[in-house]
């Protein structure tokens, strides 16, 4: 199915099914580590750049140990990057306080905070994607439930993810049929677009309903159940403690500054 390949349906699912030590870790432990990571990234002051650098170790080590290809994560981060660009767009214009001089160039606080936003965005989004890729949506949602998240929310998240692909596939089929009958013209008029989106909504609702019926027909009652319930062991504990220690260390001690200080003999 070409459509499936186009929207990469299942690439994350496929990654989520790999069997590596990282995948075998308890979903809750991985979630906790990622949440701590995000909190650490966000807690840095607004102009921080060098202090964020060591944090890249986290996504890269996870990708390495989880056999997650860099491209799979990078492409999806790039896809969402425009949002971060818009968030930070006005910083260089609004905040012109010079904070740094590099030879002839003076860098304003706005630019620094802009780059800082991009870095934070890349770090947090890639961490979330890696979490999904090394756990799989189903175990992730089951883990959320076990963490005490109300089943309603966990199920919502699960459906949101499942139907995303359903709607994507539906949209592709509709666009294909429009293309086939639009006599070679590439442009679609606004009127056609509005009808298409309306139809897409109706069709997705229908389809979502059929999928839901298939689920309740097999006894789905709103609780997510998984076959192999993991019980956190010493590995999981070690994973969480190790990374937490790393985050705390990086937050309060900037290795780049320390290295610079050591090289120049200043303290």
């Amino acid at each position: 199915m070409k459509a499936a390949r186009y929207i990469e349906v299942g690439q994350m699912d496929e990654l989520g099914r790999l069997d590596t030590p990282l995948h075998r870790l308890d979903a809750r432990v991985k979630m906790a580590a990622v949440v701590l990571f995000v909190v650490t990234v966000m807690s840095f002051p607004r102009y921080e750049i060098s202090g964020l650098m060591p944090l890249f170790l986290f996504p890269f080590v996870l990708m390495g140990s989880g056999k997650i290809p860099f491209g799979a994560i990078f492409k999806k981060v790039a896809l969402a990057l425009p949002f971060a660009l818009f968030v930070g767009l006005f910083n260089p214009l609004l905040d012109r306080t010079p904070v740094l001089t590099l030879g002839p160039w003076t860098i304003s606080g706005g630019w620094l905070s802009f780059f800082s936003i991009l870095l934070r965005f890349t770090l947090t989004v890639s961490a979330a994607l890696i979490l999904l890729a090394c756990t799989g949506i189903y175990r992730l949602c089951a883990g959320l439930e076990r963490l005490g998240v109300p089943p309603l929310f966990a199920t919502q998240l699960l459906f949101l993810y499942r139907y995303l692909f359903v709607i994507g596939g539906e949209a592709l089929r509709m666009i294909r049929s429009v293309r086939m009958r639009s006599a070679g013209s590439k442009k679609l008029s606004l009127r056609i677009y509005s009808t298409l989106t309306g139809h897409l909504l109706l069709r997705s609702i229908d389809r979502a309903q059929r999928i839901y019926r298939a689920m309740v027909s097999r006894g789905f009652d709103g609780q997510i159940r998984v076959l192999h319930r993991t019980r956190p062991g010493w590995r999981d504990l070690l994973f969480l403690i190790g990374w937490s220690a790393f985050f705390i260390l990086v937050r309060f001690y900037n290795p780049a500054v320390a290295l610079g200080g050591w090289l120049t003999g200043e303290h």
Partner: peptide, 19 residues
């Protein structure tokens, strides 16, 4: 409409697990 899990195994296991 009936197959919504990520593997055939998980899909077939869905009903029995709900039981």
């Amino acid at each position: 409409d009936q197959l919504f899990m990520s593997t055939v195994f998980d899909d077939v296991a869905f009903g029995p697990l709900n039981q």
